[in-house]
């Protein structure tokens, strides 16, 4: 019986207790401070890119949808950088797909399922709701009132 190997209890990973540093250095030796700083610079650059839609250089100022799509693309790129490098997913084994892909799909389905009942809630509305609902014309009305007040010199500024 003496030549049995060590029997570890399910709670204790053989390499979890004292050889952690070694194991990690072996397992995750892909990072490196240079890489992290490069990702940091990229993230800062991408954040300022989001503001590009506000500048006069942006050619699609009349079509906000283009700007939104651009900003979402920038956000997704930033998210990928954080997940891949900072969260070390780039260097993980294949289990990463098991956790992330179903969760991401569920998240997308969830949003799509909200569209008919919530996204299109104003296609058919009761008279009651239509009466109290804000419209674009209300914003125009308020803007006209502000202009009129400006001309009259009524506001305190």
């Amino acid at each position: 019986m003496s030549d049995h190997g060590p029997i570890t209890r399910p709670g204790d990973l053989p390499d979890h207790d004292d050889s952690h540093g070694e194991h990690d250095a072996h397992d995750h030796g892909h990072g490196g401070i240079g890489k992290y700083l490069a990702v940091f610079v990229a993230l800062c650059f991408l954040t300022t890119m989001s503001f590009l839609t506000y500048s006069s250089l942006w050619p699609w100022r009349d079509e906000p949808q283009v700007g939104w799509a651009f900003m979402m693309a920038v956000s997704c790129t930033k998210a990928m950088l954080v997940v891949l490098f900072f969260m070390h997913v780039l260097w993980e084994a294949n289990w990463k797909y098991v956790l992330t892909i179903p969760a991401a799909m569920m998240a997308i389905f969830l949003c799509i399922m909200l569209v008919p009942d919530i996204g299109m809630r104003n296609r058919m509305v009761s008279q009651e709701r239509a009466l109290h609902m804000a419209r674009e014309s209300d914003v125009k009305l308020l803007e006209r009132a502000a202009e009129a007040a400006m001309l009259e010199g009524m506001p305190a500024h």
Binding site: M106, I108, L110, C111, G119
Partner: peptide
């Protein structure tokens, strides 16, 4: 689970926002 939690929040925000008349 947190991905799904925030996806639900962000998703409802997007859907509410773009479904809103103003």
């Amino acid at each position: 689970t947190e991905i799904m939690f925030f996806a639900a929040l962000l998703g409802s925000y997007i859907v509410l926002r773009f479904g809103a008349p103003v």
